[in-house]
Design a protein around this nucleic acid. Sequence first.
DNA 1: GTGCACACTTAGAATAGAAACT
DNA 2: AGTTTCTATTCTAAGTGTGCAC
Length: 572
Amino acid sequence: MKMTKKPKKGNRKRRWEEERYTDGVKWKFLEHKGPVFAPPYEPLPSKVKFYYDGKPMKLSPEAEEVATFFAKMLDHEYTTKDVFRKNFFKDWRKEMTSEEKSKITDLKKCDFTEMSEYFKAQSEARKAMTKEEKLVKNERILQQYGFCIMDNHKERIANFRIEPPGLFRGRGDHPKMGMLKRRIRPKDIIINCSKDSKYPEPPPGTKWKEIRHDNKVTWLVSWTENIQGSIKYIMLNPSSRIKGEKDWQKYETARQLKKCVDRIRAQYREDWKSKEMKIRQRAVALYFIDKLALRAGNEKEEGETADTVGCCSLRVEHIKLYPESEGQEFVVEFDFLGKDSIRYYNRVPVEKRVFKNLQLFMENKEPEDDLFDRLNTSILNKHLQELMDGLTAKVFRTYNASITLQQQLKEITNGEDNIPAKILSYNRANRAVAILCNHQRAPPKTFEKSMQNLQAKIDAKKEQLSETKRELKSAKADLKVRRDEKCKKLVEGKKKAVQRIEEQLMKLEVQATDREENKQIALGTSKLNYLDPRISVAWCKKWGVSIDKIYNKTQRDKFAWAIDMADEDYEF
DNA sequence: GTGCACACTTAGAATAGAAACT
DNA sequence: AGTTTCTATTCTAAGTGTGCAC
């Protein structure tokens, strides 16, 4: 793939300019220390008791450990849910001795409160640990296990700690919530590294499941998780060469789409008229993916996960058709749970042909039937591949997100504004994308209160402003009477103060607006995954906004390639 | 086409750490 | 200095998409 770039500054190649390997080879040399395992279980002190049916009961270590997982979640809503409790209890019983099993037959009779209190106290104690103590411990492990050598570079590893055992927390209505996520041991672990590297050592007295040398993949460590049976990986940090290049490539593909999106749109509009049902469905689905930035919607195994859908897996029950609604024609109402069981609700007017097609697709179907019964993501992606090299459904999300940011920035940035107002504009552009992609968050628990506090601050600032203005007035009056240096100085000082306070007030007001508009919207996901960072870098350069106002340290590391590459006239 | 294994990106919540306030 | 509040980081679940066997 051709990627536009500036000529390099020095002799040394930047990492993202080094040559890339061919035929799927991801690296030539890989050396690392392996994973950090979860600390072993520490039995509770004997004074911390578990009660069954009001009576203290000493549990076997295995049963006790699983009980602590539940105790640690006692304050969480999960533990009130039937499915969670049922799954937990079933898995807990598997860890019990036969005696325990015969005695403990009802979860309602279990009292974990002492355990729960104990863990709360522990976490308080941990908080009270001095900075140095915490830092030293974490830092040592980070230095030892947090990095690897991939080819010529020392790279940061993302998740070098193995997930500790606990109770599975699925999102939404997950049928497996509460199941026991078992402890991962060395014999579960597959190590991936290069043959000529120094292999990681398993803990004394243990063995790895396997050591392999597959340089067509990027992971360092893998294991199979017991809830869904899926594979988990340890991979590199987003700042690494291998992740950065992939990210860059993703945006280049989206820019390719920009070049041919008009043709593709014309094509799918044509296909709305096709004689073939399959093609019509494909064309309508693609229209939704393009217009509404819906996800592809792979099919999922029923009963294994929460019931969520994307575009291709939409069911009849997820949309409602209104030939006419609130003065608009051909309105489609979407209401379904998407990824992470986040609700997607939207009412959109569509073209007549789309509307008619939808009516056709829904004819003689039950609510739980697939809307696009002749379509799936594989068919759709095969078609997209023919339209453009590397094109898949998700590229539309990347493309539409990035192009929206660019357009919005162009439209709403005001050169006259001061820096905070410009940043507000940036956040608003970012927000437009987050809304498009339906990136939501639970409103922070303290949102109302924090809003009130901010408003109080604003009121106080206003009060201060009028007070200072009064002082300025009287100083001016004084100056008229006694024209001495001291009075002049005072007037100047007050003028400055008024100006300063006005600026502070303005900043607070901007902050309030920004926060209010952000109540239920998460900006981070689009910023991190959908917006070509070069657009943001160019915007910062063009308007003289420091890049760290837009990206924090971690984000600057992730987007180092873009910060280096883009100048102020970069066009997505 | 269908089902499955695999590898990788994308996602919001939880937690830790930093900053602001009292 | 202690407490509260905001921000950054960590965690890991939940998606997407490919390739292969049948």
